[in-house]
Write a protein that binds this DNA or RNA. Sequence first.
DNA 1: CATGAATGAGATTTCATTCAT
DNA 2: GATGAATGAAATCTCATTCAT
Lengths: 185, 185, 185, 185
Amino acid sequence: MDKQEEILKAALKLFVEFGFHGTPTSKIAKEAGVANGTLFHYYKTKNDLILALYTDIKTRLTEHIDSKASKNDSLKVAFKSLFINTLQWSQEYKQEFYFMQQFRVSPFILLIPHEDILRQAKAHLDIQAGIKNEILKPLPAEFLFSLINSHIYGIDQYLSSTNLSDSKQQKLIEDSFEILWDMIA
Amino acid sequence: MDKQEEILKAALKLFVEFGFHGTPTSKIAKEAGVANGTLFHYYKTKNDLILALYTDIKTRLTEHIDSKASKNDSLKVAFKSLFINTLQWSQEYKQEFYFMQQFRVSPFILLIPHEDILRQAKAHLDIQAGIKNEILKPLPAEFLFSLINSHIYGIDQYLSSTNLSDSKQQKLIEDSFEILWDMIA
Amino acid sequence: MDKQEEILKAALKLFVEFGFHGTPTSKIAKEAGVANGTLFHYYKTKNDLILALYTDIKTRLTEHIDSKASKNDSLKVAFKSLFINTLQWSQEYKQEFYFMQQFRVSPFILLIPHEDILRQAKAHLDIQAGIKNEILKPLPAEFLFSLINSHIYGIDQYLSSTNLSDSKQQKLIEDSFEILWDMIA
Amino acid sequence: MDKQEEILKAALKLFVEFGFHGTPTSKIAKEAGVANGTLFHYYKTKNDLILALYTDIKTRLTEHIDSKASKNDSLKVAFKSLFINTLQWSQEYKQEFYFMQQFRVSPFILLIPHEDILRQAKAHLDIQAGIKNEILKPLPAEFLFSLINSHIYGIDQYLSSTNLSDSKQQKLIEDSFEILWDMIA
DNA sequence: CATGAATGAGATTTCATTCAT
DNA sequence: GATGAATGAAATCTCATTCAT
């Protein structure tokens, strides 16, 4: 692994444990096994590092979801795939998922253009279309989007607080999707 | 308003905008219109101030909810009251509600005994009892709790991102409760 | 002497010896006998300190010159007074005078509005008027100003590089003025 | 142009604008279009670079003056040649001339043996001889030297602050020499 | 020769906290 | 109680310099 990756990895670990501001750049460098200045060789400022980490994680999650999606699925299958893959990823990459939540209630979120946030998230499925085709309930798309998102976060939180076996976890995720689908369709 | 209150008010405003660590105590003091040292007269450390603010806000929310609840309601009515009053409060005191979310994904949350968090939240309604009485679905209480909570946060987020009239907002909150109830009962 | 003065005094001493950037703020603080942070309590940045020092010295020189000037002098007497008092001050406050020269060939000079520099310098005598009254040679005022200034700096440099007794120094300054006067009148 | 020259050229440009310490070696390298390390291949330290630049410029000025001087001139003609050629050079190579002034009020000047400074400057004409031959006024040679030097700087400053046509500039330089000559002879 | 990633000492600046008034 | 000057540890960031390639 090259130094730049080591730095991101170390930053993630420490940010999750101590928060952005509770983590000095010197500790990140030490954890990454590089010199203090090396961090600033790759990231001009600590802010830049935080933003780069967010972008990196978001990209990885998006790629994971996209890699599992197939083009010709029905809306429900597409939704289900998105839902399940997001939650599986959230459990496999707990730190990453937690970091994103931290980031989203931090002032740093303001540095990400608002559209970027929505676009990427909604890119995976066309809620609008589902409403038009009368597959989804006739509610504002933004509202449905909020419901779906928060549902996912709720499940993630529950999974993280308990310690289910893989199969039980799998079952719970699938059941949860049916609950969600009943709610929005 | 006395100085102590002014300090809390100033801290809330600045924390929400700049984050805990992004807000120096000197700025809080200035915003509150008191001297630097005065802040430390009331709160021994900055940490103490943050915790006191959290406790203060949580208490105010709890009191609001409790003041609206009546003892002899059915479970559904009790749930509905909790749900509606929480969301109405979240919209009236947006900064406060946002602060609590910030606090909960921050390392400070570890300073609050885990049980305190659950107990207080669940104190208002006995999910366990609802399951036993077969009013609620036979799912783990913790799981239902997560679903309820995240649902509330989802609605709050949607309400905060749009700008509905009071009546429309009221309607949406009530509809959302029915959706939630269908999900858990 | 209060701390703010001590800081200016220490800064002057060290800047003259090591240059602006060759002097860390930590050394200034130590030389002034104050804590590191105290310097920044009075001057928001090192730049601010440098500018404040320049302004302070320039003010002191101006006040010295003004205090020695009398209103009703002839132009020649007024010039002579300015000339002599500037040079006496330059020898009494060598560090201060040297600092001003350092400052003037540094990028910091750009932070001082150009007009401020000329206005203050020319305020003491009206070259323009002297030209109109045919007391001074019919040359551009700016040109005469440059000649006068550089003459003063030349004498200062000579005085600083030799070690004359007070009386000889006094004599040389007076003779130099006559040389200057012959040059411009 | 080879890399070594590019480095000197870049250094000159940036030093004049930002000062010695205000200019990182990395910026010099970038401006010169070479890699960071290349600079240190040619100049062991930043200090060495600064000194080399000073020496280079001083040599070029000296060569310019020498190339214009003829051996058998009278003292006045020799002086005039020195004076005029210095000022013409100062206007043609403004950055270079400004750099030398910066250098002379910087702590770096101490790294140049004092005698070198005087010798080279005085090498071009024998003030001492002029005094003995009663061509120059019976004043200390060092004093005359200071007067001449500062006069030149004064003219340079005026020329740099205005924008005269070449012919007017030429005329002003010649007139200024007569003024100087009257002052010292 | 030339490169540029890597270093780490050190510079500037911030900031929670103290304390004499 | 209230003030705000003073503190100094610690944080972010810079930069001259090195060295493996």
